[in-house]
């Protein structure tokens, strides 16, 4: 395995263990000190729905207890991790929940600032290096490669369409969440609370890491049947997308979408020196997100477009020395070098 890929795999495995098994690793300490989070703990107002109110057998039952830290880092950190996991939840969960609860902005501000700061530092590196769901997906990709099945490649139009869908998903789930927050419509909360979480594949996958049975079906009412079926379809799409299409799923992920807004202007940047480029296409070939802008650029470019998850496979696959460079606030981290 090449240098950068080896580093990335190690970081991915460590983050997966930390984020998913954090509940097992740090729980004892937390119980001694109580829930000691530097940031304010966000609580559901009286009468409002929250994940803790769901019972086993219902879709949103969190299959464990409270997380170690009440923070929301920019990655897909699932609320439904076994034993609560390390962090509370992902940004989509955070926004949906607090829109429903109509939490005051002054309580949200510290959490949002932390999120913005982390995004500003690393951009979408959170997707490529930390996201545990991405790691699961990369494992599926690895499996496909071992089985000698060719990767599916998608045209750029498909990519843009997926991004459009992602905007649709995010805005729909946030507006539903805001809608059911009004006292008049609060009776819908038991069905429509956290609408994206109900179909998110992470909700079904994460509990499996702790050998806890996720609530993969709830056929009690019409709405739960619809959500159950939708979740199945989405999980199937998710597995197929990662198996055949490398990281094509990440164009659809709403958490990745929020992270991607910070890619431009983030501390981590990818630079291309055009005169070194031979237009061989190895960078576009290696990109798991299927981006081709790096290949197409014919002048010196700072490459930080929204789709890039900063896995730097282009950098390690570039056969030209110093053609592609990764910089962190202008300081060179790594450059393409063939052997």
């Amino acid at each position: 395995m090449k240098r950068i890929s080896a580093a990335r795999r190690s970081v991915q495995v460590i983050s997966l263990i930390l984020l998913i098994y954090g509940g097992y690793l740090f729980k004892g300490k937390q119980e001694e000190t109580g829930n000691s989070s530097l940031l304010p703990r966000l609580k559901a107002p009286a009468g409002a729905m929250s994940t803790t109110k769901f019972q086993p057998g219902q879709i949103l039952w969190p299959s464990g207890d409270t997380p170690v830290l009440e923070s929301y880092p920019p990655s897909l950190v699932c609320r439904f991790n076994p034993k609560g996991g390390m962090f509370k939840a992902c940004i989509v969960h955070f926004l949906s929940e607090n829109l429903t609860w109509q939490t005051s902005f002054k309580y949200l501000l510290p959490h949002l600032s932390l999120f913005f700061l982390l995004c500003f530092l690393l951009g979408r590196m959170w997707c490529g290096w930390v996201c545990p769901i991405g790691t699961v997906g990369d494992f599926l990709t690895w499996l496909r490669r071992k089985m000698n099945v060719p990767a599916r490649r998608f045209p750029s139009g498909f990519r843009i369409t997926l991004r459009g869908f992602s905007y649709g998903l995010l805005s729909l789930s946030l507006s539903i969440s805001a809608f059911i927050g009004f006292p008049r419509y609060a009776r819908f909360q038991c069905y429509w609370f956290l609408p994206y979480c109900q179909v998110c594949p992470a909700r079904l996958l994460c509990p499996l890491f702790g050998l806890i049975k996720p609530n993969w079906k709830d056929f009690s009412t019409g709405i739960t049947i619809v959500f159950t079926l939708l979740a199945w379809v989405v999980l199937g799409l998710f597995l197929a997308a990662f198996y055949w299409g490398r990281r094509v799923w990440c164009h659809l992920c709403p958490v990745g979408l929020v992270n991607s807004w910070f890619n431009r202007g983030a501390g981590m940047e990818l630079h291309k020196k055009a005169i070194k480029c031979t237009k061989c296409g190895y960078c576009a070939e290696a990109c798991p997100m299927g981006l081709t802008e790096m290949y197409q650029a014919s002048s010196d470019t700072v490459f930080n477009q929204p789709g890039c998850i900063m896995c730097w496979r282009c950098v390690e696959n570039c056969p030209r020395d110093n053609c592609l460079t990764v910089k962190f606030f202008g300081r060179k981290i790594v450059a393409s070098k063939w052997r």
């Binding site: 000698n148 099945v149 070939e285 290696a286 056969p319 063939w338 052997r339």
Partner: peptide, 19 residues
């Protein structure tokens, strides 16, 4: 120019060779 193998599947190898 080297062969930069991205995926060691047969398809990936042929593409890498073509590039």
């Amino acid at each position: 120019d080297p062969v930069e193998i991205d995926e060691e599947t047969e398809d990936g190898l042929l593409r890498a060779l073509a590039l």
